[in-house]
Design a protein around this nucleic acid. Structure first.
Length: 292
DNA sequence: GAGAGTGTTGTAAC
DNA sequence: GGTTACAACACTCT
């Protein structure tokens, strides 16, 4: 495969998919050249950013929640947050033309390319970000550890513990939706997977955490973990840009049961229509019949 | 062509 | 302290 391109707005499974693929491809490579096309994406000081990366070797890639950290051989880390529209696309110069799909990589850098990192073997890593919410930030190890430590329990991580999950949810008066979106409490879930987890657990997202019975909170825990694991298996969800730029099959979009299905019949009860409301500032989908 | 909506999160007001 | 609303930005959709 010649490139990595994700037209997705990433939650945990999407970020982890990118992390794994990049780990295979760029760990061990040395940065030879850095081009910053938009200062905001690197914290406003391109000169410092470029200087700190020059001739540094990438020795590993870590992740916590939706935040990635590229580890450099000098002990520093590049924190990468994709926020809503960020992409990391790796181009090693080879081309695969199967499927007849266009290869957007041929057009990189494009209007939304903010940073281009060129390695000593001439392969390149593009950071694209339409809305400019995402960022690349260089920090030392202590700062990386501090930032990582602020994340809450996370599906698939050593921190995941359903007893703890139940306590966290049941001690809060906020809607379940808001609790699960709060990265400091439960890390990694975003808008799509919170709706999916609530649907599978048969809990209405507007329910107050402290109104849940223990079994309801336990179900929410189980399905939060399960939906993330399953999505990871399918290399994540691409919602709007439905097809990935490689024409590659296998993504979780087909497996979504409520997200984006407003007005359509519930796949479980087949009688009610999925409702869409605004909750915690986000579009929120649920079945008024299946979810209590 | 105006206004609403978009998958995130930090901040500030309550 | 916890909870909630909103801004940051650039696009697409209605």
């Amino acid at each position: 495969m010649d490139m990595l391109a994700f037209e997705t707005m990433p939650e945990l499974p999407e970020v982890e998919t990118i992390r794994r693929d990049l780990a295979r491809r760029i760990v061990g490579k040395t940065i030879q050249h850095v081009e910053v096309l938009h200062a905001k994406s690197v914290g406003g000081r391109p000169d410092l950013f470029i200087k700190k990366l020059f001739r540094k070797k990438i020795v590993g890639i870590a992740r916590r929640g939706k935040l990635m950290a590229l580890e450099l051989h000098d002990g520093n880390f590049v924190l990468v947050h994709l926020k809503m529209t960020g992409q990391l696309i790796y181009d090693d110069g080879k081309r695969v033309t199967t499927g007849g799909h266009p290869l957007p990589i041929d057009e990189l850098p494009n209007t939304w390319t903010r940073v281009v990192i060129t390695f000593s073997d001439k392969t390149r890593l593009f950071f694209n970000d339409l809305r400019l919410f995402g960022y690349l930030k260089i920090v030392d190890e202590a700062e990386k550890d501090r930032v990582f430590s602020e994340f809450g329990i996370e599906p698939g991580h050593a921190s995941w513990d359903c007893d703890e999950f139940v306590k966290i949810v049941r001690r809060s008066s906020a809607p379940v939706k808001a609790i699960l979106l709060d990265q400091k409490r439960i890390a990694g879930l975003g808008n799509i997977y919170v709706d999916e987890a609530c649907f599978r657990a048969k809990v209405r997202p507007q329910r107050r955490g402290n109104s849940l019975r223990i079994v309801e909170a336990q179900a929410l825990c189980k399905f939060s973990d399960r939906v993330i694991a399953e999505s990871l298996k399918y290399r994540g969800t691409t919602f709007r840009h439905f097809r990935d730029s490689r024409g590659k099959k296998g993504n979780f979009s087909d497996k979504l049961r409520v997200y984006g299905r407003a007005g359509k019949r519930c796949v479980t009860c087949r009688s009610s229509e999925i409702e869409k409301i605004k909750l915690a500032g986000r579009g929120t989908h649920y079945c008024p019949n299946c979810q209590q």
